[in-house]
């Protein structure tokens, strides 16, 4: 065994001399096909998307170059602007609601309570179900159950389907998004709360920390990394919302709930705007990158280490 180790050591010393050893090369030969696969179906398509964005391609037939016109037109296109406003409004409201509720739920589910694992199991169920079918089920609730309740209780707001009004349809999508999103974030918060050691609380008790103080000064800073994860995850998923739109509103009423993904799909694939929506998609990609970097910059620096 000693001999082997020494042999390894001498071999290592040899390796350092000529940088690329045989072993390194074998690793590279394995990596190259994987990189090619990734390039062909990811990076190349991104570049092609940019290329299509420079044309007036309809998705079929001939096309010609139009330079940056599509990219310039994007900024004055009312429908695109509306979809960005809707998507960001949805994402921000959803992220706030989901994180507040799931943090409260996680605090509760982390206590010494009866049937804890069953409760945790049930609260996670919405996350495993597909957004499309969930949307169809909620669509029935919004169109039939809620108005019926509204009529019984005399609440005028609920008497018509909230999906039918341009003012309230987005709320319906937030509700469905929250129903599914809370499940995921709660589980992550629970695992975060479990990383807080018991003696931190004991020390806090000795110092006379009460419930709210305990949360603000002990729990909150210690689970900050998990809050970062949840905010980033929730925001990212919300910005790409598609399934729920597809099943709840199809972008209506009067295009008030068109998300960016839905607009790209709808107008790009069947609306004859292949080139224009390719430009939109590329800008969307840039926006996602910027948002992600901003989030990491703002949230990443504040984590506290124990």
């Amino acid at each position: 065994m000693e001999k082997k180790k020494e042999m390894v050591k001498t071999k290592r010393a040899q390796k350092k001399d000529n940088k690329w050893t045989q072993n390194d090369k074998v690793f590279l030969y394995i990596l190259i096909p994987i990189l090619i696969l990734f390039f062909v179906f990811n990076t190349l398509q991104l570049l092609k998307g940019f290329y299509y964005g420079l044309t007036n391609y309809k998705g079929y037939g001939d096309y010609s170059f139009v330079g940056l016109r599509n990219f310039i037109d994007l900024f004055s296109d009312a429908r695109v602007g509306k979809s960005y406003v809707f998507t960001f409004k949805y994402a921000i409201v959803l992220t706030i609601i989901v994180n507040i509720i799931s943090l409260i739920l996680a605090l509760g589910l982390n206590k010494e309570i009866k049937g804890k694992s069953v409760l945790r199991g049930i609260y996670f169920v919405p996350n495993i179900l597909g957004g499309l079918v969930v949307g169809y089920i909620f669509s029935f609730i919004f169109t039939y159950i809620l108005p019926a309740i509204g009529q019984m209780a005399g609440i005028t707001f609920l008497q018509n389907s909230i999906l039918a009004s341009t003012k309230s349809a987005w709320i319906a999508i937030v509700i469905v998004g929250a129903w599914q999103g809370i499940a995921m974030n709660t589980i992550i918060y629970i695992s975060g709360l479990q990383t807080v050691p018991e003696d931190v609380y004991e020390a806090g008790m000795i110092d006379g920390a009460t419930g709210w103080e305990k949360f603000c000064k002990l729990t909150f800073p210690l689970i900050l990394p998990f809050i970062t994860i949840n905010l980033v995850l929730c925001m990212k998923n919300a910005l790409m919302v598609f399934d729920q739109i597809m099943s709840l509103t199809k972008g209506g009423p009067s295009q008030s709930t068109e998300s960016i993904s839905y607009l790209i799909y709808n107008n790009g694939m069947s609306g004859g705007q292949f080139g224009f929506q390719s430009a939109n998609a590329f800008v969307f990609f840039v926006v996602i990158v910027i948002v992600s970097f901003l989030q990491m910059k703002f949230l990443g620096g504040k984590e506290e280490q124990l």
């Binding site: 998307g49 998609a281 990609f285």
Partner: peptide, 27 residues
């Protein structure tokens, strides 16, 4: 070279499917 490959692949997380959808359909 391997470190660059790592960042290259992982940065793919920033690319939503909706962005690649149209070129991929053609491809």
């Amino acid at each position: 070279a391997f470190k660059m490959s790592y960042y290259y692949i992982v940065s793919g997380m920033f690319v939503p499917f909706a962005v690649l959808m149209m070129p991929l359909v053609k491809q």
